Amino acid sequence: MTLDTTPTILIVPGLRDHVAEHWQTLLQQKLPNAASVPPLEHDKLSCAARVAALDAALAKIDGPVILVAHSAGVMITVHWARQHDRKIHGALFATPVDLENPLPDGYPTFDALAENGWHPVPRKPLPFPTIVGASRDDPLARFERVAQMAQDWGSRLVDLGEVGHLNPAAGFGEWPMAQTLIRELA
């Protein structure tokens, strides 16, 4: 791509927003053309508020965009895509959370997620190219469930092996594969 058409990388964090040691935060610091959806001050569990924050962040970007979403950030993105028609160059979805099944203790309950608009998870094909990175031992989503989501969205599935939830708790700070997958979308 030429300089004028180099996509902006927009980071879409999950419900825990920005974590200093997280691969998304570290990736944003490395890339000169990266931005992030800012953390919410209110309505932090509201899917509609998260979708609106993503849309507001996209409105500030001229030109092509590649979305880089992790965990519930993936769900924010698929909900956004169902409601908006802005052209997106592509998206990298890393270890999407399965919100259609109860999550472990310490995470929002199934009922709280339903009350805040997260259900049902959109399953129609997305209008832009996507790569879904799935973990074999993610405590927040079984590999088979993520593989089915990827198929429903028309995404290319990448088996990441046993990487947990691909976050600092699973031993991940930097995740160099993200840059490789982003280049494939560019």
Rank of each mutant, 00 (worst) to 15 (best):
I88M: 05
H84C: 14
G117D: 02
P96Q: 12
I131P: 05
L92N: 09
G164F: 00
P122K: 01
L160A: 12
Y107S: 07
A49Y: 09
L58S: 07
A114Y: 07
A52N: 15
P139I: 00
H119Q: 12
V132K: 07
D137A: 00
I61T: 10
R123N: 11
R145G: 06
I66K: 05
A114W: 05
V132N: 10
L99D: 00
A150E: 09
F93S: 08
D159L: 03
F93H: 10
N167K: 05
A141R: 11
T95H: 07
A52S: 14
M75P: 08
I131R: 05
C47L: 13
L113F: 04
P139W: 01
A69C: 13
A134R: 08
D62A: 15
V132S: 10
I131G: 01
P120R: 09
V65Y: 07
A150R: 00
D111F: 04
D105Y: 11
P129F: 04
Y107W: 15
P108G: 07
A81I: 00
T130Q: 02
G161F: 08
G133I: 14
W80C: 00
D152F: 02
G106D: 11
Q83F: 04
L58R: 06
P120E: 08
V97R: 10
R145S: 14
G63H: 14
T130A: 13
H89I: 09
G63N: 12
